[in-house]
Design a protein around this nucleic acid. Sequence first.
DNA 1: GTGAAAGCGCTAACAT
DNA 2: ATGTTAGCGCTTTCAC
Lengths: 333, 333
Amino acid sequence: MKRVTLADVAKEAGVSKSTVSQFLNKRYEHMGDETREKIRAAIEKLGYRPNYIARSLKQKRTSMIGIIVANIMHRVSTEVSRAIEDYCHEHDMHAIVCNADDDPVKERKYIEMLRARQVDGLVIFPTGGNIELYKQMERENYPVVFVDRKIDGVNVHTIVVNNREATYQAVCHLIEQGHTRIGMVTPPLTIYPRIERVNGYKQALMDHRIEIKSEYMASDEIHRIASWLEQMFALPQKPTALLAGNDLSFFEAMAFIKQQRIRVPQDLAVIVFDNIPFASISTPTITTIAQPAYEMGKKAAELLWKQINNQCEKAQLYTFSCRLIIRESSKGK
Amino acid sequence: MKRVTLADVAKEAGVSKSTVSQFLNKRYEHMGDETREKIRAAIEKLGYRPNYIARSLKQKRTSMIGIIVANIMHRVSTEVSRAIEDYCHEHDMHAIVCNADDDPVKERKYIEMLRARQVDGLVIFPTGGNIELYKQMERENYPVVFVDRKIDGVNVHTIVVNNREATYQAVCHLIEQGHTRIGMVTPPLTIYPRIERVNGYKQALMDHRIEIKSEYMASDEIHRIASWLEQMFALPQKPTALLAGNDLSFFEAMAFIKQQRIRVPQDLAVIVFDNIPFASISTPTITTIAQPAYEMGKKAAELLWKQINNQCEKAQLYTFSCRLIIRESSKGK
DNA sequence: GTGAAAGCGCTAACAT
DNA sequence: ATGTTAGCGCTTTCAC
């Protein structure tokens, strides 16, 4: 099964390799019509397919970019990735998605693997655990865009959402509905967005002179969320509203709610920070804080593309606003 | 920002390129300890990272495989992909996922793009629209595994599920629960698995001497599903149970059901063919026909790996069995 | 044990 | 308008 090369095509067509190369790169300017036709025929006859690996080696660009998501189980990661892919598609590029699984070691491994494969740039949902590596890429001027999390001390284009303001607004909404006992569950407060979401929650309570009670706040590993909720709902003054800090904690909460036969929204109003697919068709419908994932992905791709093509502006922070999608379940109390 | 090459490392360490290459490939057998250390130090000092593109060009393998899913919106595609990625991970390979979007033109484009990028093999959820291309790969002995759909006339390792038997069993279950008016919705019957699912449905009815009524069967584009359901539920004898042929049609059906305030399972038992994430926590819980996606993906990866490493057996059809996961909603009537 | 040299398949000056 | 040539960064015989 011998591979057909450009040289074979050249021989078959009776021209030189460079002419064939011109042809492949659609630089027909200085090329006789009959030459063109001969080459076309030769390619067809031999079933030739160019080898992009060889081309990349020479050109020093692969037209591929890498996306490293912190955790692919978050819906927003896949939505952002999808937007980036669409952008790539329009710009004759391709995207490879890798899942760091919230593990800095895996993240490092993927960054290194993708760079070894010569991808032209990287969109990263940083775990935050590889500061030195991030800085190194910055020093080398390697094209990178961060999404979801700002990393202090690393000067890279970064796209985030207004976490704090969004939860603030959501909690205000609950308060307006008459709720005062509002719980919040999140994964561990190890990363900036989660902390900001909790801060927004606290701020909203404070601004309404509602006491912040630690019994109403549970931040722990996903598999321990349920037991915290158990405690929370065993309180004499159990919450009448619950804010889930992201989709994964939301699903845990819903499992608990179902198991305890708590009725939403009659017994408990629920709001979740994150895009929940089909939130609108589930019963009960769920109020969500939606991140503009598509726009974020598009912007990330665009920023990366500019860097790759040396049209880089100074690194900057882009903050996108979330949208509170109010559905009946939050009309509580 | 000059790239550090293997040649630079060799010079720095005062050895030849081939020795460095040996080192990189962990062939330390015939290598002095001091040489090894010198090279290690040089690599560290220069911050050298090998160029996989160059290596691939020489070795004629990229250690990458491609996955082309027919439609990434199907949950089962992502689950299978995930399993394949895990397998790759264990075998020092990497997977690239592309979405054909049910479009044979896109499918062809991706197959060609991935092969131009020299991926070592392909897992394809075939659209069925590129028979000649499939056959060509078969002729060239290019490593390929099909998943989800058997393509007649193409002799390639193929992994499918027992569609017919699975729906048969599901419908029997409904009948045992006392249902006789059982509806079914699916996307258009253009591909084999969907046809088989409908066949299983019909067979079950026939075997129980229940008349097959066309009013109870709707197979059409997703966006037209709703209007078919409207007709179905306007019948004097409306169905008491509904089988959704896949996840996408299920979501359409659920939107309709919710809008019409039909209560599940009191008014209508629902079963869906496909893995629905969080089917267990939604209210009502939904009975599902679960495909063993992880096992399927693992098998696909294994079959591909064997082909890549020339341990190919004869192409064969592997049929996996689905599991009916009965939840309360199907206890109807 | 280590080095020299010949490619892998392609592109891009530079000639002609 | 087309051909010649020199690599891209690595691996891999085959010498020494």
